[in-house]
Write a protein that binds this DNA or RNA. Sequence first.
DNA 1: GTCAATCTTTTTGTATACAAGAATGCAAAT
DNA 2: ATTTGCATTCTTGTATACAAAAAGATTGAC
Lengths: 218, 218
Amino acid sequence: MGQRRADTIAEELEERIFDGTFSDGDRLDEVRLAQQFGVSRTPLREAFQRLALSGLVELIPRRGAFVRQPGPVELMEMFEVMAELEAVCGRLAGKRISDRALAELNDANAKCQAALAAQDSDAYYVENERFHHILYRESGNSFLQQEACKLHKRLKPFRRQQLRFRGRLAQSMAEHEAVVQALTHGDGDAAAAVLREHVAVQGEKFHTLMASLKSAAE
Amino acid sequence: MGQRRADTIAEELEERIFDGTFSDGDRLDEVRLAQQFGVSRTPLREAFQRLALSGLVELIPRRGAFVRQPGPVELMEMFEVMAELEAVCGRLAGKRISDRALAELNDANAKCQAALAAQDSDAYYVENERFHHILYRESGNSFLQQEACKLHKRLKPFRRQQLRFRGRLAQSMAEHEAVVQALTHGDGDAAAAVLREHVAVQGEKFHTLMASLKSAAE
DNA sequence: GTCAATCTTTTTGTATACAAGAATGCAAAT
DNA sequence: ATTTGCATTCTTGTATACAAAAAGATTGAC
């Protein structure tokens, strides 16, 4: 419905929340933003609705729309769920993955390796993402795929930093190889175990990151 | 935002979609429903937005809002994901569950047993639901809990029928006992395995149900 | 009789106008 | 000085009005 402008506005706002233009607790002023986008309040309100359902914004009746960034605890929880979803994808893919997809995974891994050799963490990041999306797809369950993609996207801004941890790229690479190895042998459980650890460690890294930031602030 | 009436309208529409007043593919007429609810189009459109994000309604630009019931394939996929989510809850609960919660689970099971003895499938259904919600909570991950609840609710109208299968109640009961048993011993993996099967079988039952309906229609 | 093009009607998307609730500031009283 | 009550102001929630796009009908040609 509120489609032509409302959805582009929703994306734009989502972008600004992700990139930190708006921070946690900020109120999204209807009239201000309406003027800024050059539209009326109506499409903005429709955009707010969508953001609310994605969990990026909290709608308080008669009070307004407030940016709702996940706190450390919620973030850890989300990483934990992400880890489990990836594990499920891996396990299901063990039974269902095609040779074609296995080749794709190997290709993504090769490009990851190249990026690693070139110390190009951006390129690594891109191929890493491709790797995981192939996995979601090969779960053979498009509902699961959608859910995994949604959460993956949601965690994107928090994951990027993790890759910069010392030695993380190499370790991550090895884990990818292990996943492909397991899937090649049709061992979904092994792939699941590796993936669970692979993603869970990101949550832990994040945890230590938060802890260091906190102690630095004290 | 669109809060006072818009959200009650959203709930009402959700209700009607669940109970079959609206069936798959139906267009939700803005003006018609607006008159019916005695409001203007604005709150209705806000309600549509919410339903769209829950996946119950599809918003096609410049065309309108259409009811979107999951088809057999999508439903099977959703049951599969539900099974995996429950399994994850079980595994995590194995490490984290409290004695208090174990007692609650036993209580729910006892009431289930009573309902089973009384051939009261409605009562069984209620306690069964409680059992699962306790499990979600005891995963110790409130994000996971939320996701599990959302999907559980979404599948509600399709699950109810399954319980009427011959002998299903008794089997379901036994599975619940097995879950509590595993959790009591802190064996999350065992609980996960049982739960995965416990929920997955619902998807299969559904599958056979669909198949029988289809062959009956031919 | 069928098909196509155009015109009419309907319906969505957006803007604006209005009403009601919440926040803020000021003043008076304790 | 603090607090309580009221009034003002701002903001949200809803209704209505208008514009543009899509669906539908009508007329004309073949």
